[in-house]
């Protein structure tokens, strides 16, 4: 009985955080700010849902652990995709006017390319 209450609480927490991630994606105004909401809220949300499913399997069905695999995979890949999307924003100068300056001779890696290899952000992609 107590374990059911625990499962319900974790399920609701997971659904809530997944929803908050998407609400943030829709509500926030600048592209970089939008990056914050889904990459994290969703990972914790899906993590909680998987945890609830695992507890339920141990309590009511045959024990199962492979939810851990999905969880670990999501937690490892979320920062990498977030980093790639941030690089896209920097490359397309979406929010970049205020990038902090660096000491002379270095440049942020995404903007730093030899002049002949520089790829300008194309206007065609939308």
């Amino acid at each position: 009985m107590l374990i059911n209450v625990l499962i319900v609480v974790i399920l609701i927490i997971g659904a809530f955080f997944t929803l908050v991630g998407s609400v943030g994606l829709l509500k926030l105004k600048s592209p970089m700010a939008r990056l914050h909401a889904p990459t994290k809220a969703s990972t914790l949300g899906v993590g909680s849902l998987l945890l609830a499913s695992m507890i339920d399997a141990f309590a009511h069905r045959e024990p199962s652990l492979h939810e851990v695999l999905v969880m670990a995979f999501l937690f490892v890949t979320a920062p990498i995709s977030a980093n790639f999307i941030a690089k896209v924003h920097i490359h397309r100068r979406s929010n970049v006017d205020a990038l902090p300056p660096l000491p002379e001779g270095t440049e942020w890696a995404t903007l730093d390319a030899p002049p002949d290899q520089k790829i300008e952000p194309s206007e065609g992609l939308r």
Binding site: H36, T39, A41, P79, L102, T106, E107, A109
Partner: peptide, 19 residues
């Protein structure tokens, strides 16, 4: 990136600063 509120976006070209 995983601790919410902050996202690491880029590294300086000589690898000594994190954005």
């Amino acid at each position: 990136t995983l601790t919410p509120g902050t996202v690491s976006a880029d590294l300086s070209s000589d690898g000594t600063e994190l954005l």
